[in-house]
Amino acid sequence: MTVLTTTFNEQRSSLAVLRFDESNHFYDIANFGFFVYLMTDFVLFSGLFAVYAVLHNNTAGGPTGSTLFNLHNVLTETLLLLTSSFTCGLSILSLRHRNKHKVLIYLAITFILGALFLILELSEFKHLINTGNSWRRSGFLSSFFVLVSTHGLHILIGLIWMIVMFIRILKRGLSRASVRRLTLFSLFWHFLDIIWIFIFSIVYLYGALNL
């Protein structure tokens, strides 16, 4: 029997005996479980998309999407998020080479791009609210705000997650748990990019076409 004895936690070194196959198996389980969670999030967003699709013409005499959206701003957001998805992938690639330095750099870039995205989104919201087009205005604006800000909320959670991981990797290096969590995080981040493709196309591009 292959038994791997390695101390990865000082406080509990006496207990830290992990069978080699068990550790792999555990990663596999966590990965699958997290993937199932992402699928539930897909369903959650699909519910919001359905609501948006039903309500998007209910402007109650207020403005429509085509008069409100600044597509230029949205393209910038899209490119920021897409690039951050790419750098997140690079961070995962650096994990394979056990290059802590590179992992951290790419993670930092991902964080900055994600934060810029969120700032742009918030400034868009702020502009809408200041011009009297808040979520209280109409069913269309309610569904717009909720759909887009639910995605934004996920981004915010992703940003906090990145900070936590960054500090942990900095302090403890690429421990088994950090590696696992970083891989799960990358799934989460790519998933958010995928959701954004649909927000970009359905809300903004179709909105510009007055569909």
């Binding site: 292959t2 791997l4 390695t6 080699f20 550790s23 792999n24 990663y27 990965n31 490119l79 897409l82 690039t83 998805s85 790419f86 992938g89 690079l90 995962i92 690639l93 994990l95 394979r96 056990r98 690429l174 088994r176 590696v179 696992r180 891989t183």
Partner: peptide, 27 residues
């Protein structure tokens, strides 16, 4: 063995070229 443990999570992940192709096509 230790390196196998650490590599395990990344075994199914892509390559640099893969990420690059995906990125460019998406762009």
């Amino acid at each position: 063995m230790i390196s196998r443990v650490y590599n395990a999570p990344t075994k199914a992940e892509g390559t640099f070229n893969g990420y690059l192709i995906g990125f460019i096509l998406s762009l």
